[in-house]
Design a protein around this nucleic acid. Sequence first.
DNA 1: CCAATATTTCGAATATTCTAGAAATATGGT
DNA 2: ACCATATTTCTAGAATATTCGAAATATTGG
Lengths: 114, 114
Amino acid sequence: MKELEATAACLEALGNPTRLEIYRQLVRAGEEGKSVGTIQKAVGVPASTLSHHLKHLELVGLVERRRAGTTHTCVANYMTMDEVLGFLTEECCADSALRRAHDHDHRAHKLKAG
Amino acid sequence: MKELEATAACLEALGNPTRLEIYRQLVRAGEEGKSVGTIQKAVGVPASTLSHHLKHLELVGLVERRRAGTTHTCVANYMTMDEVLGFLTEECCADSALRRAHDHDHRAHKLKAG
DNA sequence: CCAATATTTCGAATATTCTAGAAATATGGT
DNA sequence: ACCATATTTCTAGAATATTCGAAATATTGG
């Protein structure tokens, strides 16, 4: 299965606290996105470190960027996250799992595999 | 935020292809779980490697185990996964994200934050 | 107690990740 | 051309993760 590898790569990318925080910032920023410098102020890591993490997130497809002049604007790519959640719910877990766990907010998931 | 750290730890744990495969096996096994030996046959890694990965998954709370005689039965802990997905949907992403992306199967998520 | 089975811990080699300063590149303004 | 700003690439040290054989532990049965 190739999808497992891709999903693992995304999970690994989000599995670093700094990167998860970066990704959270970007999701909160919505369609508009956030510049690298703004992210840096919010997250508080040196520019080179941030650049490294952003490249990582970009590599697995969780983040995209638009270059305008000297400013790079980063945007979360929801489709990739959707695929990750799709793998987790379909291939891997949630339907057989979450629905019978506790009745949080997840009952609404549709049944896919028998 | 403490939750971010815990979520990142879970994502990191699932972010290794072997561990994601192990976790998938366990979820598919359901409540009944799967013995370490059975997992080993399915996944095909040496016992010591598998043990190491299982400990990792156990440490972050994604897996629990029941000892019966000489056999250890591993079970996926759905509650932990639920918390991870909860963080991703509430704190971090999906509502502002997935719902407007493409109309996959995720429309059913309930709105939480304004 | 001894043997057999299931699993873990130890130990050590190898690989990868993380971090961040310094230098490089790119763009826009003057 | 030059300067300022935004960001990346280079480099390298420290920290962590991965792997797996060998030895250790635990449990059951004889």
